[in-house]
Nucleic acid binder design. Structure first.
Lengths: 384, 384
DNA sequence: CTACTAATGAAGCGCTCCTTCGTAAGTCGA
DNA sequence: TCGACTTACGAAGGAGCGCTTCATTAGTAG
């Protein structure tokens, strides 16, 4: 049941304007006739719509493309640069930020290292530095920001308050959205990092176009993000994907197999042990290979649970360990094939470390789209 | 992003007509002014819309309600009796059927016992008898049937072919939809029974209005149905909810604890053993109680997996064993509370044995709605 | 320089919805 | 029984939006 109420004539115009914007965003600069054909309107009507949209500042004219037969057609494009979005990935060791235009085209990226045990203030000021860096790189000012979307570990409630975070103690019970709203004069969105990563892969990464996706966020901590019917699944209390809490899933302690592999040199820093084991496995070290096997044994149990419950089209392996997906994917596929009723595609992430930032940008774009395309609001005028 | 393309003026009228139909279906007979207020249209326009809908046979006038101030208003209602829907539950031991009008109001129900090892022909003819029974009870003819929706165990592909069915051997690889289309001259829909039951509970049962639901279909076989974001989740290969295939979920063998309880009398039929154990547990038999505990221990593992992965608002316990939910719910809640990050509501089914049939009817109604409310189709004229 | 092509812009038409008005059909109170 | 009141009905006039049509304009090709 499509949730559209009919009504006024102006509603029709509004619908048509939105369709025009959508087409322009999707297909770049278009001529009037092309736009008319795509939207199903006649050219004269389309003309009126574009005139109105130009008036409001959503659309602008670009030079016609020369070298065509006949009179050159005017071309119009969506003014993606009338506002900017920022995506932030708050990780344990790094804070990444990216700035994009309203189309989600990334214009600048920065990274700020932080210590895992950094205080709340240090962490927040690192966020501020990361975002300011993006603004400086892209020569935009904070007043041009429309939305800032943040991905972080832990369970975040609907209002953007951190409910639970095992990894970052300072985060616990923090009103993160509130803090960020004090820092930036724009809309603030908070979401779990694994979910954003899942979204990113389903939009721009390995799972482009896939409507049902399980994203494995594997690294020193284990997480999962679900895309169901093309949308990120949050769950009723925003706690979806927390399968590692279940002992039988064998996810919680799975990374220990890699950390405690006997062939890791003694002087290796604890946070590098897993990486060392994976590298050794790739080089053929039998002890490391055995550790990886044990790790994948465990990883496969929780993964199979998700696959059997959801029957997704695809499973994407992402997160820190996905750099070693060549070592992990084979055994994982083999184990899943044994248990799963219908074997999904199992692919490595193509966005790597960028996945959370990219997902945050996508999340912000989605939010904008929601605002634009929900019934009962006229398009907003744009400041010039 | 709402999936609506603007366009023609007639599209607007169509939208308004559909909104009117929807309101009439939801709120029963309505006066013109009430309808106008609900749809947002003015009364004169509403008048024209209803006139058109009456012309097409979708709507009819009912006598005005007397005893009001002022001139009595004409009232209109959706002609739910211009067509009929049938829902069928193909179980191991019983085939149930129900007939409803286009609103999903159930008008007749029948049940046909079948033996678990009945042949394909016997089973199909039992279906025919069940449906004919409904038609006779409600004095309708098969030509008035618009849709027949069937719920059955096993995995059914998109075209209505049974891919896998552990319980009913004759079902394997059967083109069930094809067979039924030969039997009935109307649309045929096939869906997994647990999913239909989940749908039923989320529409008319314990989970009314709940958008994220895990339905436990527990009985001699274990199944699960998921409602996510208000919609039944099928999965990419229609195999969602098959958690019992995973050994670690401990679902597959869970019923054995009830079947092999030592205090079950030796002369009990195998299919009644579990029921006996549950009854004994309710009466306080300590051996039976211990068996139930072991059963719930196992049931809780797979359930916790689903809850942690999906974070649903509610878990509903349904299926054959749900008659004993007073014995099962307490221990189940206790175990879930221990493992789950956010404890969902856990309630017993309110539809009991009817759940699959009711779900099938709901499924047929939904299908009708989809056809009605998807863009680009004019309302069909109704035979009078 | 002319023929051809393709987009433009203005004019006229039809449909759908809105507002406004006088009229009709009931109930309530004397 | 009759008048006042309440509420809905139905017709008329008007505005907004989109469609079709056609003369005009700005390019390319020969």
């Amino acid at each position: 049941m499509v949730d559209v109420r009919g009504g006024d004539l102006s509603r029709l115009r509004q619908l048509n304007s939105l369709t025009a914007i959508r087409e322009l965003r999707r297909a770049g600069p278009l001529t009037l006739s092309a736009l008319a054909e795509r939207t199903g309107l006649s050219r004269p009507s389309m003309k009126e719509v574009t005139a109105e949209l130009m008036e409001l500042g959503w659309v602008e004219e670009v030079p016609p493309s020369p070298g065509t037969m006949g009179r050159p057609a005017r071309r119009y494009r969506f003014r993606a640069d009338s506002g900017y979005l920022v995506g932030v990935d708050i990780g344990g060791h790094n804070i990444r930020a990216a700035l994009s235009d309203l189309d989600g085209e990334i214009l600048a990226e920065t990274r700020q290292p932080v210590l895992p045990d950094a205080s709340l203030e240090e962490r927040l000021s690192a966020i501020e530095r990361a975002v300011s860096g993006c603004l400086a790189l892209s020569r935009t000012s904070v007043s041009d920001l429309w939305t800032i979307a943040v991905g972080t570990i832990g369970v975040i409630d609907v209002e953007g308050r951190v409910i639970y975070s095992a990894a970052v103690p300072a985060w616990r019970d923090l009103d993160l959205a509130g803090k960020l709203r004090e820092m930036f004069p724009c809309q603030v969105l908070i979401e779990n990092d694994s979910r954003l990563a899942a979204m990113a892969e389903s939009r721009r990464g390995a799972a482009k176009g896939v409507r049902d996706l399980v994203f494995l966020h594997v690294g020193r901590r284990m997480g999962a993000g679900l895309v169901i019917d093309g949308k990120v699944h949050r769950g009723f209390g925003a706690a979806a994907g927390e399968i590692s809490m279940l002992p039988e899933s064998r996810w919680f302690d799975a990374p220990e197999h890699l950390n405690t592999c006997p062939s890791v040199p003694e002087d290796t820093a604890p946070e590098d042990a897993a990486g060392w084991t994976l590298a050794a496995a790739r080089a053929g070290d039998p002890v490391a290979l055995a550790a990886v096997e044990r790790y994948v044994d465990d990883l496969a149990v929780g993964t199979a649970a998700m696959v059997l419950i959801l029957d997704p089209q695809m499973v994407v392996l992402g997160g820190g360990f996905s750099r070693s997906s060549d070592v992990l994917l084979g055994p994982l596929r083999e184990r899943l094939r044994r248990t799963c009723m219908r074997m999904p595609e199992v692919l490595p992430s193509t966005l790597g470390d960028e996945c959370v930032v990219v997902g945050a940008i996508e999340y912000a774009v989605d939010h904008l789209d929601d605002q634009l395309f929900t019934p009962d609001r006229g398009p907003l005028p744009v400041t010039r």
